[in-house]
């Protein structure tokens, strides 16, 4: 999947799961702030990515995924 395809696929899913406007999801936005993540909802993010792209984000890698651009890059480089 190209990065454009990843973005087109993941943004609507995140907007629906976390009840935010899709327009708020921009590459430079910080995921934790935009999606209002906490220790409970973090696992929802991991589950959406795992389910949609078959990409597991281990807890050790989470600190490197700060912005949506980081997330897209992570998915692109780890997809099967």
């Amino acid at each position: 999947m190209t990065k454009e395809e990843i973005i087109a696929k993941v943004n609507p899913l995140l907007a629906e799961e976390f009840e935010v406007e899709e327009s708020d999801i921009t590459p430079d936005a910080v995921i934790y702030d935009t999606l209002e993540l906490d220790s409970l909802s973090l696992v929802d993010l991991v589950a959406v990515i795992e389910h949609t792209f078959k990409v597991k984000i281990p807890a050790a890698d989470l600190p490197t995924v700060k912005t949506f651009a980081d997330l897209y890059n992570y998915i692109e480089s780890h997809q099967a």
Binding site: S39, L42, V43, V46, A47, A59
Partner: peptide
């Protein structure tokens, strides 16, 4: 059992 992060399991 689904995704697990920092002791929280979905």
């Amino acid at each position: 059992l689904g995704a697990e992060v920092n002791g929280v399991t979905l």
